[in-house]
Structure formats: C-alpha cells, structure tokens
Amino acid sequence: MKVSNADRVMFPEVGVTKGQVVSYYENAAGLMADFVVGRPLTLQRFPKGIAEKGFMQKNVAEHYPASIERYEVPKNEGGTTTYPVVRDVNDIAYLANQGTITFHVWLSTVEQPLKPDYLVLDLDPPEGSAEIVRAVALETRTVLDSFGVESIPVATGSKGFHVWIPLAGKPDFEQVSKASQALAGIVALKIPDLATLEFLKKERKGRVFVDWLRNHPGSTVAAPFSLRPRPRASLAMPITWDELGSTAPDAWTIGNVEDRLSDLPRWPKPVVLPIDHIVKTAEAAGV
C-alpha cells in the first residue's frame, strides 16, 4: 500500500520509520487475524512517532473505509462508543498507516460479545524484574496444568508476560472472570513473596501483579504480534514454555522478528475450562 510520510521516524532510538512499521504489519497481518479480525479494537496511535504524545482511540474515524466495520456499544454514562472492527487483514496495515502502533483487542468477537474465546492472565512486574516474572509465569503454568488446561506465554514487548488460554464451549464472561480470578488467587497463594492480586502498585511491594481483570466484557489486551510504544520497537510475541527462561519480555523487535514469523510455536487447541473445579479449588484453599 502507499504509505503517507513513509520516512517519518516513529521510534527515534532505533531509527524505525513509518514505512517500516506499515511493512511489518503487512507481513504480520495474517498471523494477527485470529486475534484482531471480528473484534472491537482500541487503537494506540502515535501519528508523529513515540517521541510525541500518543492517544488511545476507541471510536472509529469517519474517514476510515467501509471495509472497516462500525460496532456501536452503549456507555454506562450514556451515549455510545463506535469501535472499528477489521474484517479484511489488509486493513491492519491501513490502520498502521494511520499511526497505530499497538492493536488492543477484546477477548470476544462482535458476533458473541459476552462469550470470550480466550482467557488471558497478565503478569505485570516492576521494571527490571524479568527473573521474578518468569518464576510467576512458570507457577501459573503449573497451576493451569493441574486443571488440565494448556496455555501459551506471550512476551508482551513491554515488562512482563501474558498467559493465553484458548477457550472452547462458549462460556460467558461471568464464568471466565470467576475462573480467572480463582486461578490468579491460587498462583498468589502458592508464591506470596513473588505474586499478588494487589491492583495498587504501592501495595505490591516488588511483587508481580497477576492481573485477571482483562477477562471482562469490553476489556482489552495487546494483540500478539502488536508493536509496543517502547524505545526499541519491541513487540508481543508468542513463545514456548521452554523459551521462557531465556527470553526477555521485550526480546523481539521489529529489527529481529523476520525469521521468527516463519518459525512460530504451536498455538494450543481450545479447551473447555473446568470452571467449577477451579473455583471450588480456590475457595477450599482460602482464596
């Protein structure tokens, strides 16, 4: 596609231009389809590059092409938000040409907005705590394995890791939210010196926040393969559990990702989440 201001530097520290950003998204669009297509999007845009202030865009711009659907959602305080919804993966590059750096996505589709097809636990550490967040990620895997739930870690391109679980059986958000809170609570109970459910940073005391709050209607998470507004042009990358110990959360960048895109880990098959078993186990443990 024709890129406007292709030479504009979007990531000054590494000299990555807008043309390179759009080219990356053209190459990655097919891989992003399962996480982006058919879902309401919140676009994190930096039209002048990350050295300038960016913004989060929920409402679709009037000039966006008709191929980008409009999805209207009532707001609690009145009025509506009209989200952009991509159907054609080519529109991912179009949105990158509009200055989008990160695609934040719902965990459900517009066809079934109250039935998520993913559960995500966001492991949010203090800056510079890679070893701690790895330990929490491994404990999260151990807890999930104990319930027969296969998962995959994603290096977020920022400070931490996301743990993704594809869901079968069409549970609703109320059920998935209960299960995610219970799972996070079990992890924090097992390793209380490393993990916490404390939302306020001042109460975390150097521990990793096991954030289960993504699992609510309308909440978003950075899509796998999305760039992040970080100095090195890092991005969210699925990894294997075996790679976790040697992979920094921001290991993958626009500069080193090309070969990786053709050699990706296997994504787990969707699983019917044993919600009652998880919740009852957490309750019995005192979570």
Results as ranks from 00 to 15, higher is better:
residue 1 M to S: 14
residue 2 K to F: 13
residue 4 S to A: 13
residue 4 S to C: 03
residue 5 N to Y: 05
residue 6 A to G: 05
residue 7 D to L: 08
residue 8 R to T: 00
residue 9 V to H: 11
residue 9 V to I: 15
residue 11 F to D: 08
residue 11 F to T: 06
residue 13 E to N: 10
residue 14 V to E: 04
residue 20 Q to I: 04
residue 21 V to N: 02
residue 22 V to I: 10
residue 26 E to A: 07
residue 26 E to H: 07
residue 28 A to M: 09
residue 37 V to M: 09
residue 38 G to K: 14
residue 42 T to V: 15
residue 44 Q to K: 04
residue 47 P to E: 05
residue 51 A to V: 03
residue 57 Q to E: 14
residue 58 K to L: 02
residue 58 K to Q: 09
residue 59 N to H: 15
residue 61 A to E: 05
residue 65 P to A: 01
residue 70 R to L: 10
residue 72 E to N: 04
residue 74 P to I: 08
residue 76 N to Y: 08
residue 78 G to K: 10
residue 78 G to N: 10
residue 79 G to M: 14
residue 79 G to D: 14
residue 80 T to N: 12
residue 81 T to P: 04
residue 85 V to H: 04
residue 86 V to S: 01
residue 89 V to P: 14
residue 91 D to I: 01
residue 92 I to E: 03
residue 92 I to Y: 01
residue 96 A to I: 03
residue 97 N to F: 05
residue 97 N to E: 08
residue 98 Q to M: 04
residue 99 G to H: 00
residue 101 I to C: 00
residue 106 W to R: 03
residue 108 S to N: 11
residue 109 T to L: 01
residue 109 T to M: 04
residue 115 K to D: 09
residue 115 K to H: 15
residue 115 K to I: 09
residue 118 Y to A: 07
residue 120 V to E: 03
residue 121 L to D: 01
residue 124 D to H: 02
residue 125 P to E: 01
residue 126 P to K: 05
residue 130 A to K: 05
residue 131 E to C: 00
residue 133 V to S: 08
residue 135 A to R: 15
residue 135 A to N: 13
residue 139 E to I: 02
residue 140 T to S: 09
residue 142 T to D: 13
residue 145 D to A: 14
residue 145 D to L: 13
residue 146 S to M: 05
residue 146 S to R: 08
residue 146 S to K: 01
residue 147 F to V: 07
residue 147 F to A: 07
residue 147 F to C: 07
residue 147 F to G: 02
residue 148 G to C: 09
residue 154 V to L: 07
residue 155 A to E: 09
residue 156 T to D: 08
residue 157 G to R: 06
residue 157 G to Y: 12
residue 158 S to T: 10
residue 161 F to N: 01
residue 166 P to T: 10
residue 167 L to K: 00
residue 169 G to T: 14
residue 172 D to G: 10
residue 173 F to M: 08
residue 177 S to K: 14
residue 177 S to I: 05
residue 177 S to R: 15
residue 181 Q to M: 12
residue 183 L to V: 03
residue 184 A to I: 11
residue 187 V to K: 00
residue 188 A to S: 15
residue 192 P to F: 11
residue 192 P to I: 12
residue 199 F to P: 00
residue 211 D to F: 12
residue 212 W to T: 02
residue 214 R to I: 11
residue 214 R to P: 06
residue 214 R to H: 10
residue 214 R to T: 11
residue 217 P to S: 11
residue 220 T to N: 07
residue 223 A to D: 11
residue 225 F to G: 00
residue 227 L to H: 02
residue 230 R to W: 01
residue 230 R to F: 05
residue 232 R to L: 13
residue 235 L to V: 06
residue 238 P to I: 13
residue 239 I to R: 02
residue 242 D to T: 11
residue 245 G to C: 02
residue 245 G to L: 14
residue 247 T to R: 09
residue 247 T to E: 06
residue 247 T to K: 10
residue 250 D to E: 15
residue 250 D to P: 07
residue 251 A to E: 13
residue 251 A to N: 05
residue 252 W to I: 02
residue 253 T to C: 03
residue 253 T to Y: 08
residue 254 I to E: 03
residue 258 E to K: 15
residue 260 R to P: 00
residue 262 S to K: 14
residue 263 D to F: 06
residue 264 L to I: 13
residue 268 P to N: 12
residue 270 P to N: 10
residue 281 T to V: 07
residue 284 A to D: 07
residue 285 A to R: 15
residue 286 G to K: 08
residue 286 G to A: 04
residue 287 V to W: 03
